[in-house]
């Protein structure tokens, strides 16, 4: 009898890249649900547009590069990129903003850099930063969260009208408002103290109203990701640890100028970034110790940008900056090989 040969090992775990990516999508569900509850249909509309655009862009790029479509579309990596970016976009962003950001992420940041596994920068964050720099006004179209002030919930038709309304139809006044980090930043600039600012209705129990529930949702999903090992615990631990440490130091120095660490941990994209964005393995550090350092670097940079930089939040910039540093971190954090001399 003749048999086929193959190299060992002959038994493999069946979990594939596709499963890992799908797990990321499932893990985003609770946070996305909370966002949709507080910020309306726009969150889901963004997700739908982004998914469609990402699949179209991925398909055409794969075809152009002569890659097998079924295998690579089945890895769901494009959808993950789309969702990461869509969640970061304001829920009443015009449709073309999403299209532009996702296309740039997939075409330029992912495929022109070599495709899955080869891109040095987190594609979703590249897309986000391109939009943030090019369209600052559209990028701040966050509605006032449900339950704050006289925010009124938009129905699906109204939302679609705003999103697809074309350039002429801007979001009605009074519908959108500054995010909590925005408020903190502007009012600190006006000389108010953290305690005074915290009395504003945009703030909830720990951080921003509505926002804090979304963060809770993402934390739940993120912990599940870590538990299923789809994400390495070291990156979120490093990032949240780094952010908390530097925030604590400054808060202790001057509690009226610097918000407390729990506010920072619970605000903006900190939790979402720690569990979903920074954990993108392709662009992160890959050694165990390196991942802690990589995460911590992001945490510190996020704080520096928030407290001293030109933007209210800094997760995207912090992640991209640490992406550049990842290969160097890897080089200097190689684990001690079994049997090698200690020290």
């Amino acid at each position: 009898m003749r048999f086929k040969t193959a190299t060992s090992p002959h038994i493999l775990r069946e979990t594939g890249v596709g499963q890992v990516m799908r797990r990321v999508l499932y893990a985003m569900a609770p946070g996305v649900a909370a966002l949709a509850w507080f910020f309306g249909w726009g969150v889901l509309v963004n997700l739908a547009i982004a998914t469609g655009v990402a699949l179209a862009a991925e398909t055409s790029m794969l075809a152009a590069r002569g890659k097998p479509l079924a295998v690579h579309l089945g890895d769901f990596s494009a959808v993950v990129t789309a969702w990461l970016l869509a969640v970061a976009l304001p829920s009443l962003a015009p449709w073309w903003l999403t299209v532009l950001g996702v296309s740039f992420a997939i075409v330029v940041a992912k495929h022109l850099y070599g495709g899955l596994g080869y891109n040095p920068f987190n594609p979703a964050m590249i897309g986000y930063v391109v939009l943030l720099i090019s369209f600052p006004r559209e990028m701040s179209a966050w509605p006032i969260p449900h339950g704050v002030g006289q925010a009124h919930a938009l129905g699906l038709p109204e939302t679609l009208e705003i999103v697809f309304g074309g350039a002429g139809r801007l979001v009605p006044d009074g519908l959108t408002g500054a995010t909590p980090l925005d408020v903190l930043r502007t009012q600190l600039g006006l000389g108010l103290t953290v305690t005074e600012i915290r009395n504003s209705p945009v703030f909830g129990i720990v951080s921003g109203s509505g926002w804090e529930w979304a963060a809770l949702g993402f934390l739940a999903g993120g912990l599940w990701l870590v538990q299923t090992r789809a994400a390495d615990w070291r990156i979120p631990a490093g990032m949240l640890g780094g952010l908390a440490t530097i925030a604590t130091v400054f808060h202790l120095i001057d509690p009226q100028r610097y918000a407390p660490p729990w506010f920072h941990l619970w605000s903006g994209a900190a939790i979402f970034g720690a569990f979903f964005i920074a954990t993108d393995p392709v662009t992160a550090s890959t050694t165990p110790r390196g991942r802690l350092i990589y995460g911590a670097g992001i945490g510190v940079l996020v704080y520096v940008i928030r407290a001293f930089g030109g933007y209210p939040d800094g997760v995207a910039f912090a992640v991209l900056l640490m992406n550049i540093a990842a290969p160097t971190i890897d080089l200097y954090t190689q684990p001690r090989v079994f049997g090698a001399r200690r020290g």
């Binding site: 594939g16 495709g115 899955l116 393995p281 890959t286």
Partner: peptide
Amino acid sequence: PAMPCIRCG
């Protein structure tokens, strides 16, 4: 089919 390494660790 073998996919690209995603450096998951």
